[in-house]
């Protein structure tokens, strides 16, 4: 049960302002989820320099310097950036190699995001304070997702925060509560998929990642999710080239989309969109039940 805010920029001149705009949106949905928060930023040069891959991790108490020292034994160019309770590692190698290296040198760490474009930052605390801790206002990039969490049935820890980024450059955030996630988790587990948390939203993220891995596009993957999942959900799902929104058949959990030639934005409430440049002339609407709204980069 939570607040969602996401921004997909079409106009490159806005890229330097991504973090500033996303911070403003995040602060407007704070009341919906004051327990904890998480963000995903696509294309920030500090976290995801071009030509390198990025891994985000909750280091389990291991200091950033120790992680950097250990990593450089195998990846001499690896850079570790601290962002609150999260560390972001980047190096000029592919995401899989970097993920493996991180897992080897910090076995107690939880990898919360990996790819060429995405940095995922999570923490427990007041969302506004977390945004500052993450250094979000200064972030740049072409797409960002933010989530504030009011935990329902799982614990309040950084690992339980959204976004759930379980496939390369993918992110899913959720407002609502799935009603049959335990069964789908069992099915995915039986198919060899491992989970990091007992959060119902992670089941949604793993399901979407499995469909994408099977070759379906994002739109089709979300259609399949609607067929399979019961419960109430507003989902915002992003990948390295797309941004998509879907709601359940009843569509009670709030969602508003605004679209201009410069950007597409989605949030739980209007107030999160009200500060965006040019919002006065945006096309504003609420997504229909079980309809997938997707935008390509």
């Amino acid at each position: 049960m939570c607040g969602i805010a996401g921004l997909h920029l079409r106009e490159p001149s806005l890229y330097p302002r991504l973090g500033e705009l996303l911070t403003g949106m995040l602060c407007q949905v704070t009341e919906r989820g004051p327990d904890s928060a998480g963000v995903a930023v696509y294309g920030d040069p500090r976290w995801s320099p071009p030509g390198e891959s990025t891994v985000s991790l909750l280091p389990g108490g291991v200091p950033a310097d120790d992680v950097a020292t250990a990593l450089r034994a195998t990846l001499p160019e690896a850079v570790v950036v601290g962002a609150g309770q999260t560390l972001v590692v980047h190096a000029a190698t592919d995401a899989e190699t970097l993920t493996d290296a991180v897992r080897t040198v910090v076995p107690g760490a939880l990898v919360i995001g990996a790819g060429e474009d995405v940095a995922v930052l999570k923490g427990v605390g007041h969302p506004q304070a977390l945004a500052a801790e993450f250094g979000l206002p200064a972030a740049q990039g072409w797409q960002g997702v933010a989530h504030t969490r009011m935990a329902t049935e799982s614990a309040v820890t950084p690992a339980h925060c959204h976004p759930f980024s379980v496939g390369t450059d993918q992110c899913l955030v959720h407002n609502g509560s799935f009603a049959n996630h335990a069964t789908i988790r069992r099915e995915l587990t039986a198919a060899g998929i491992a989970f990091d948390s007992d959060n119902d939203s992670e089941v949604g993220a793993r399901f979407v990642a499995a469909q994408l891995a099977a070759g379906y596009d994002l739109e089709k993957s979300l259609k399949l999710l609607c067929e399979r999942f019961d419960g109430f959900y507003t989902l915002l799902v992003s990948t390295r080239d797309s941004f998509a929104v879907v709601r359940d058949a009843i569509a009670c959990k709030p969602a508003v989309i605004a679209e201009t030639p410069q950007w597409v934005a989605m949030a739980s409430e209007y107030r999160a969109l009200a500060g965006l440049p040019g919002v006065e002339s945006a096309r504003i609407f609420e997504p229909e039940p079980e309809e997938v709204y997707a935008w390509q980069r």
Binding site: C2, M150, C252
Partner: peptide
């Protein structure tokens, strides 16, 4: 069985 203008704890708070 549900309230007509809110669902879940985040809306209940409001």
């Amino acid at each position: 069985c549900r309230h007509p203008d809110w669902t879940g704890p985040d809306d209940l708070e409001i």
